[in-house]
Design a protein around this nucleic acid. Sequence first.
DNA 1: GGAGTGGTGTGACGCAGGCCACTGGATAGG
DNA 2: CCTATCCAGTGGCCTGCGTCACACCACTCC
Lengths: 225, 225
Amino acid sequence: MDNEVLRQAPLFSALDDEAATALRGSLSETKLRRGDVLFHEGDSGDRLYIVLDGKVKLGRTSSDGRENLLAILGPGQMFGELSLFDPGPRSGTVTAVTDASFASLSHEDLLKWLDGRPEVARGLLAQIAGRLRKANDVNADLVFSDVPGRVAKALLDLADRFGRTADDGVHVHHDLTQEELAQLVGASRETVNKALADFASRGWLRLEPRSVVIMDIDRLRRRAR
Amino acid sequence: MDNEVLRQAPLFSALDDEAATALRGSLSETKLRRGDVLFHEGDSGDRLYIVLDGKVKLGRTSSDGRENLLAILGPGQMFGELSLFDPGPRSGTVTAVTDASFASLSHEDLLKWLDGRPEVARGLLAQIAGRLRKANDVNADLVFSDVPGRVAKALLDLADRFGRTADDGVHVHHDLTQEELAQLVGASRETVNKALADFASRGWLRLEPRSVVIMDIDRLRRRAR
DNA sequence: GGAGTGGTGTGACGCAGGCCACTGGATAGG
DNA sequence: CCTATCCAGTGGCCTGCGTCACACCACTCC
């Protein structure tokens, strides 16, 4: 298992070596291929997962079958926390968008763990609080911004987390189809495509399959707000 | 100060009498009149508040001055938690929608408090996790539901929390203007008004100033999903 | 009383963006 | 290789809802 990632994960950054070693005993590892589903909305389950490698999408399906993505998560990020506190069914479906691996921990083990270690509890709170803040931001965007604005915002967020700067711009291998990108910003595939094409025609970015190269990040930022 | 409400507040429901008495020493009380602002988005501040009496709206303002409400909070509910974990500026503005009173607790006191009492920490986590889940639900609604659907949902939520059942229906004194209701569901005042008028013309509810009487809650529920 | 103010009710108009329909390229599976 | 499937790109139509523009209270405050 990849210790490096775990030690950098926000949740465990406060741990000393001894504690980290002790923790590893409770963890188990899972691997998925692109497209595989880790769990479905409505499943029961109480494990907390941390992404070691790859990316997943966290989505929910409406009653009439349409889908909407809450988040794209990469290495170091956790999910499945919600079922820890109200132990109901899973509130979303988690699907791998690339081959991916995870460390996971049972509800029970985590709670045992938290009791003795207030700094970990605080880390967990900070994680969830951050997610809440972000969810609120997304709400505001859905109300205030148009689709191109939300697409720009999503690209910038993905660039922040997965981008690599080269001399021809920031390469963002988001690994998402335009359909998925559309579900992430809450719009139709067609409209997202048109927004992307428009950005490209202005020279702000270049489109590549499942990735973009951002060439003028300042303009994109201005479009996003 | 109203002990009853405090003891029922989800955050402190796990406390025994001794602990509750000890806590009261750290609390201070605040009162507001309808329309008064407790704090603004961007203010610094690290107090956690618990509503004792009345209602508040938690809102944020977009760069071009339009407003959007994240939540309406009533007795027993807390707010201001976010600044506890990343101690940045306030992420929203809190305004009283009725005369209201609050108990508050400083960041520092709360953290001191949490360390010895894992059950309170867990209560706090559960609260925030619940809010996160709710924020995600709102996101899905903004993507999937039309305005009338969101209005119906908002009314049902308000009815759940503030409604009183009488023989002519469920009386919901939400204390919101239609403008505020519109900001809550992310729509214009006019469209919300038309949705309400439509519901009323179907006999599902009756409109009264700053309140509604829901007469056919099942139909309203069906319209909401 | 009259005038201002804040909330509610309604019609008309325009447009962002959803939905549909189709094209073409790329990848996979036989 | 050929076919099937998936994904990206683009145009056209239609509608939900935002915006504008009013009218009509129900108040408070002179």
